[in-house]
Each structure stands twice: as C-alpha cells, then as structure tokens.
Design a binder for these strands. Sequence first.
DNA 1: TTTATTCTAGAATAGATGTTCTAATATGGG
DNA 2: CCCATATTAGAACATCTATTCTAGAATAAA
Lengths: 187, 187
Amino acid sequence: MGRPSSFADEAVYAAVARSLVEAGEVRLQAVTKAASLSTGSLYHRFGSREGLMAEAWIDAVEAFQVKFLAALAMPSDVPGLPAALATPRFCRNAPDRAALLVSAREREMMSDKAPDALHARLAAANGKARNALSGFAKAQGLPLERVRLALIGLPLGAVRLYLPKAPLPELIEQDIAKAASALLKQA
Amino acid sequence: MGRPSSFADEAVYAAVARSLVEAGEVRLQAVTKAASLSTGSLYHRFGSREGLMAEAWIDAVEAFQVKFLAALAMPSDVPGLPAALATPRFCRNAPDRAALLVSAREREMMSDKAPDALHARLAAANGKARNALSGFAKAQGLPLERVRLALIGLPLGAVRLYLPKAPLPELIEQDIAKAASALLKQA
DNA sequence: TTTATTCTAGAATAGATGTTCTAATATGGG
DNA sequence: CCCATATTAGAACATCTATTCTAGAATAAA
C-alpha cells in the first residue's frame, strides 16, 4: 500500500556508475538527474549519500560474485579457467556494474558512515568468496596467492586496460586464458 | 634571491597520495597538514587544486615510465620480462608514487581545469611510452594487445591485489614472470 | 469516499572545502 | 644596511554540495 515507487534501484546504481566514470566522482545532483528522481526520493530510499554508495557497491560486488563462484565450480580441462574468464564475461554482460567495480575505490564506496548492516552484508559476501577461493586452491594444491592472481588479479588487470572507456577486444579471453593457464598448471 | 622554499614538491605529492589512500579522497586541508605547509604556500606553488593534482599525477607517471622504458630496453632470455617486473619493483622502491598510480583515477587527477601545459606534458610522456611499446611489439612479432597485457595489465593487476594496504608478497615476481612469459613467447 | 500510508517534489538550509587576500618573514644584491 | 624579490601564514571569504523539511500526490484498505 502507499504510493508506488517510480524508479528501480538498479537504474540509480547505473547512474552512480556512469556519473563516476564520466565525471570522476559521484555527485548526487548528477545521479538524480541521470536517474530522473528527486532528492526527496533519493533520501527516502537510500537514507544518505553513504547509504546509496554502499548499496550500489554491494549490488555490483554480489552480482559479480554469483557469476564468479558459479564459474569456479565448473569442471574444466584447466580447473579454474572458467572463473578467470568470468571477469571479461561480466564486463560484457553487465557493463554498468563492471564499470563500478573497475573504477571505484572500495574506500569511497563503503564509507565508515555507511549503515552497519551494509558493512556486514559485504563482509559476509567477501567471506564466502574467500572461502571458496581457499577451498579451490587447496583442492588444486596451488598457493592461494597464485590462484588469486590467476583468477582475479590477472583478469581485472586485463579488462582495466580498456574499461571503462573502450570496449573489450575480441581476443582478450584468449590472452587471459593463456596467462591464467600458465599459473594454474600444477608445478 | 627571495625567501627560500621551506618544502619539497615530492613531500607534497606524497601527502596527496597518502591522503587519497587513507581518506579515499584528497582534501587540501589534509595535504597541508601532512606536508606541513600553509594554504598560502600551496597556492603560491601549485596555483590551484587542479594544478596540484595534475603535477602529482604526472610526477608519478613520469617516474614510472623512466623505469619501465629502461627495463623494456634490457636484454633478456624472455624479451620484455624485465619490463613486466618493473611494476612490482617500482612499488617496492617508490611506494608513495605507486600508491597514487594504483589508487587514483586519471580522471580525477587530470582535471579539465588543470593547466594546458600539464596536459600537454602528460600527453607527450604517454606518446613516448606508447611508441616504445609498439616498437617492442613489432620487433617481437607479437600483437600489441598481448604485449600490453603482459607488461602492464598483468603486473598492475598483480600488485593491486595487495597495494595500497598490504606489502607485496615475496614471490609475486615469480608469478608475474610465469604468466608474462606465457604471453611473451612466440606463438 | 475517506483514511492511512508511502513516495515524490524541490526550494531552503547547513556545513564543509577550495580560494583569495593582506601582512609578515626570509634571503641575496646594491 | 636597505631594497627588491620570493615565499610563508592563516584568517576571511565564496562557493558548492549534501541534507532537511513541508507540502503535495498516488495507492490500497476500510
């Protein structure tokens, strides 16, 4: 009951990401304009700037982790390779969320002043991902550091050469696969 | 002649980098406090916030490029490998500049309002680096995209897994070398 | 239709941060 | 020693941006 909302949260998150990319910073005025909502609506829904930033960040992080963890569990000739390729795929399929993950500093998205509940939610998601990575490394008999490089650092570094300005080149997956495979092979 | 300056530019750049890392943003008050200078001095030397940010950024970029280009010209069993390892070395030797390169968005450091001369200086440096990379790729018969990944994207992605919060692990060079070598080998 | 509830609207406000400005301070040369 | 020059100092100022606040609008239930 009550008046229905006139906007979707994701549209606001997208506006946050675009504002960050285009202006180099997030101004609420830019967000309200891009997402076509009033300051009143924004504060009614998100409570504060910190709340909005934190929600947008968590939305992107969780969306990525879902894909990443699913890929990590996929069987493959080179175990882990699908997870390494989850990053470029995510960038193609969810460009706004990817732009946020690639461009924003966690420090500026998760302010100390953000609601505790959101900090807890992010910590839970990160803990889950950490555990999955540790389990994978152990199962494969590989050092966790190397796994993190192959599955996260390398793919992120690769897409950051292009995003958020340019589209990803066609063969980026091939190069990521080549480098990741070298890291994932049993010594 | 005239009163001598009481501070070094590099100390101010370092304060900019630390402020960015610790607070998630650069506030002039934090910079003046950390570098122990007055607002008057800051404006006398840098003209504006945009000028300061641009100078700090260019200082870090140029310092890195000097090391990178020297490494790129070094002979090696795996041509290019020293350049790939220039990034972790730079992070160890010049942590403040590295923190800036790793944490800042170019967009926020090089404001449109920054002096044209600084924009030109950065463009010149970037052009030089671009040419060197292209020359290397051509000489090695490798696609430029792959070279950029091996020498820049991969090492950056690797160090970003740790910086600016944690120190680099000892064996990061080994892993970078392993992955970079796989990319740099002639197909 | 009436009422309770939820959301929208946007002008007004408060607070923070970049910038300016004038006086004071330190050096080298005449 | 005094002048010209360059730099420092920091309070006052101006601007910008987040936030608040009150009135109004849209829905469902009674």
